Amino acid sequence: MKKFSIFSSALIVLGVSGTASAAWTDIDLNKPGNIDGAAYLGTFNYNGQTYGPSTALSVAGQASPTIENKFDLKQLKPFTFYGKDRDDSTGHNDVIITANTGSAQAEAPVVYRFYRQKHSAAIINLSRGTEARHFAKAVVGEKTAAGTLVNGTYNYKGVAFTHFPRGDFNYQVKVTGPSNATGEGSFSLKGLKIPARQSYNGQDVYFDINRGTLNSSALAATSAGLRFEGAVTVAESGVSDATAWQHIKGPQSNPSYRLTLYGPKGAEIAGVIQGLPSRIGTAAIMGSKQ
Rank of each mutant, 00 (worst) to 15 (best):
Y82P: 01
A145T: 10
G250Y: 05
F81G: 02
A224K: 11
A231Q: 11
S8G: 10
P178L: 01
Q62C: 01
G271F: 03
F114N: 01
S278F: 13
D85M: 03
I67N: 04
V139Y: 00
S21W: 08
R197M: 04
G15N: 06
S288Y: 15
K70H: 12
W24D: 06
Y82L: 05
I248P: 00
K143N: 05
A136G: 13
V173W: 01
S54C: 03
S103C: 06
G167C: 04
D87L: 05
K3Q: 09
K174C: 00
N180F: 02
N34M: 07
Y257F: 15
I123K: 00
F161S: 05
G263E: 02
G250D: 07
P178N: 02
S17T: 10
S237L: 06
L219Q: 06
T282E: 14
S199F: 04
T282S: 11
G91A: 15
F207S: 04
S58M: 08
Q105I: 10
V139G: 00
F228Q: 03
S223W: 12
A160D: 05
I35D: 09
K143Q: 08
V95L: 11
T153A: 05
K118S: 08
R116M: 12
T260E: 07
S8Y: 13
I27P: 02
A39G: 07
N125M: 00
E268Q: 10
V159A: 12
P165W: 08
D88S: 14
Y40F: 15
N201I: 06
D87P: 02
T233F: 04
D204C: 07
N30Y: 09
K174T: 04
Y46F: 12
D168R: 11
N170T: 14
F44N: 00
W24M: 09
A60H: 06
F79Y: 15
G158K: 11
D87S: 13
S9E: 12
K193M: 14
A60S: 13
L219F: 08
Y171K: 00
A106N: 14
S199C: 09
Y46Q: 05
T148P: 00
K74V: 11
I124Q: 00
F71H: 09
P277M: 07
V59T: 13
G191R: 09
R279F: 03
K289M: 09
K193Y: 08
G191E: 09
T19I: 06
S54G: 08
H92M: 08
A20I: 13
P178K: 05
D208C: 05
L57V: 11
G61Q: 05
Q252K: 12
M286A: 12
G152M: 05
T43G: 02
S9T: 11
A60E: 15
E142M: 15
M286D: 01
Q246H: 13
D94R: 13
A181P: 01
G141Q: 04
L73E: 08
G275E: 05
G152V: 07
I124W: 03
G91T: 07
A136N: 10
V173Q: 10
D36T: 04
K84W: 15
T176D: 09
D241A: 04
Q117R: 07
Q203T: 12
R258V: 15
S223M: 14
